[in-house]
Design a protein around this nucleic acid. Structure first.
Lengths: 211, 211
DNA sequence: CCCTTCATGATACCGGTGTACCATATTGGT
DNA sequence: ACCAATATGGTACACCGGTATCATGAAGGG
């Protein structure tokens, strides 16, 4: 047999090429030949490792989410060991904003897949609706934990605020993508809400504080 | 000459057909033949009234925003003459959520166009980035007006809240589209924030109230 | 009246795209 | 050492989509 090559590695290389070219020209415009050229392999190779374009696209989505998860993990790790809940939340949210080329590509392609999934049932069956739910649950847990530690407004509804923060980050991310908003303004808006949520009840006078 | 037909009417009919078929099968999947079939005319007719597909797509976007603007206007009119600021804001936000077939189509296609515009400079040059700005300004004005009338928290930053509300409505709209969230839960989240913003400082004692 | 101009129909063409088929070099196992 | 399985290249095929071309019908003006 010839040099036994690592299939998974090659598949990752090709999926990466897909993401790169799709990030540049748009997911709708990417063809198998483009992916092959970007990966520096022949068209036949792309067919060999992914029989069909549909499978290539699915694996591309998988690869994309994997890379993003790793990126978020790195951001969290960079926030230092055992950061406070607010720092953690802030890292989570800001990591999802398209601030550099990689996050820009991620946001664009993830949005593309999401929109595609509305009219493509095969894509809708793909498990990438779990990720938003997981993020929502994780963020809710973080907020509840902060409330328990007395770091966040105990009257806030953790899940509602988690949903709100994620929604704002997502939509403002798209605004950044289309050039309507700057990353700085988006972060400012998020900060505003974090200030609100992480405001501990200061109870100024005796008993008239919020209750 | 033959029966002089109203060009604008025909163009609107064809653009409407584009929106219908694109709403069903996705903007990426629509072809000129599909549009022709949906409109009940021949392929040649579509070419005749829109020379190229690009122009057809542009006009489709225009038609889409026009229809949506009309819909929002109708919603506002349905809220009764001179509704309160909160009712107006609520009508504005809920009108943008995909709750029925028409708003679903609008949200899907507008998002598709937006994503397309990221990698298509011709689309990016199209003036559909003005609409979000206009909405943001209008909503900011409404909130400021409510503040001036003592109906909303005077300490809130009107523009930041306007941006937040629109962002949440947009992102949760997409969540509804992909089946992750229900319209009811989205409305509940929006209500939560409206309750917060439209909470007037209750000024319990005499003179310490906001002024 | 008929000719010009507008509206519409049928169809051909060309480029591109996903997929299938055939060929072949390479190397590990016995 | 040779066989067989693996990896890879080249290419052809069928299809589809946007666009262009040719043709024709319909009516209003001189």
């Amino acid at each position: 047999m010839p040099k036994r090559v690592d299939h998974e590695e090659r598949r990752a290389q090709i999926a990466e090429a897909l993401i790169q070219v799709a990030g540049r020209r748009g997911l709708h415009a990417v063809g198998m030949r483009d992916v092959a050229a970007e990966a520096g392999v022949s068209l036949r190779l792309v067919q060999y490792y992914f029989e069909t374009k549909e499978k290539l696209l699915f694996h591309g989505l998988q690869h994309l989410t994997d890379r993003f998860t790793a990126r978020v993990g790195a951001r969290l790790a960079a926030a230092g060991p055992d950061p406070g809940p607010r720092a953690t939340v802030e890292a989570l949210l800001s990591a999802s904003l398209p601030t550099d080329e990689e996050s820009r590509t991620f946001h664009l392609l993830y949005s593309s897949y999401a929109i595609l999934s509305v009219t493509d049932e095969a894509l809708a069956a793909q498990p990438f609706i779990d990720n938003p739910d997981a993020a929502e649950n994780a963020l809710t847990g973080l907020l509840e934990h902060a409330q328990g530690a007395g770091l966040a407004d105990p009257d806030a509804d953790a899940r509602t605020e988690a949903i709100s923060l994620l929604a704002m980050a997502a939509a403002m991310g798209t605004s950044i993508l289309v050039g309507q908003r700057t990353p700085e303004s988006a972060i400012a808006v998020l900060h505003h809400h974090l200030d609100r949520i992480f405001a501990t009840a200061q109870t100024p006078e005796g008993g008239a504080g919020p209750n």
